[in-house]
């Protein structure tokens, strides 16, 4: 796997609870190249988050193999979960502390990230004093602090209001590109998926597998917001929409 960063082969996952077994993922095959930005969309409750949990190693697949060629994996959630009692700086250091990576060098790098993305002046503030968009940016920097090469983004914009969401999508896209990270974005927002990624994978409903795949033809420098007014955007949206709609209505 020369420049393949992630390879999932015939991966299945079964949840157990008292009412029975629940097959969340079945025969999933997925390759992500180093430096790629891909999105996963699909019907609600289709097991997208399960896939991210497996990639991060929190849960192990019931069958199949997962290869991730990255020492550190960053995981970004829907909510920033900044710790209210820690300053912004200490929130960013949280990931370093948990991983036992606190050193002068990693600290300096983290502060440099804050500086580069206009949050340095808030390093001694508390999360309460920041807006939702800024908080989510801090959450990203907390994730970048330990230099992961793979980022898993689990609907990181969905808790924000529409305006902030679009602006932050641009900013975060920019950060991820500049830091040369590979990213997998899970979202239920088709426009967001199209505007941010190079490939969009449409998941089937449970048990999830890749139903279809769309390649985007944007140049890497086009910010997500500009892509929304691209000519091909609407067609792409319609195709993905009908794919998901098929899945939602397909009862077999």
């Amino acid at each position: 796997m020369a420049d393949t960063l992630v390879r999932m082969k015939d991966v299945s996952f079964v949840y157990h609870d008292i009412s029975g077994e629940n097959k969340a993922v079945a025969d999933l095959n997925l390759d992500v190249k180093s430096g790629e930005f891909i999105s996963i969309v699909g019907p609600s409750g289709c097991g997208k988050t399960t896939v991210l949990s497996m990639l991060s190693g929190i849960i192990t697949p019931t069958s199949g193999t997962i290869e991730v060629n990255s020492k550190q994996i960053g995981y970004m959630l829907q909510r920033d979960h900044l710790l209210d009692w820690r300053t912004i700086e200490d929130n960013v250091f949280l990931s370093l502390q948990v991983k036992g990576l606190m050193s002068d060098e990693t600290k300096r790098n983290s502060l440099e990230l804050l500086r580069r993305y206009d949050l340095y002046s808030f390093k001694d503030s508390y999360p309460r004093q920041l807006s939702g968009g800024m908080r989510q940016k801090v959450a990203l920097i907390r994730t970048l602090a330990f230099s992961p090469s793979l980022l898993l983004l689990d609907e990181p914009f969905s808790a924000l209001d529409f305006h902030t969401r679009l602006k932050l999508a641009d900013e975060i896209y920019d950060i991820i590109r500049k830091e040369k990270k590979t990213a997998i974005l899970v979202t239920h927002d088709i426009s967001e998926a199209i505007s941010m990624s190079e490939r969009v994978l449409v998941f089937s409903k449970r048990p999830a597998h890749v139903k279809s795949e769309y390649k985007m033809n944007f140049t890497k420098d086009t910010p997500p917001f500009m892509r929304r007014s691209d000519n091909g955007f609407k067609d792409c949206f319609d195709m993905i929409w009908s794919d998901i709609d098929d899945e939602e209505n397909n009862n077999t």
């Binding site: 991060s56 929190i58 994996i73 995981y75 959630l77 909510r79 979960h81 949280l94 990931s95 948990v98 991983k99």
Partner: peptide, 10 residues
């Protein structure tokens, strides 16, 4: 979810 975040950090 807060605990989940901590778990993602290992």
């Amino acid at each position: 979810e807060k605990q989940f975040l901590m778990k993602t950090l290992g």
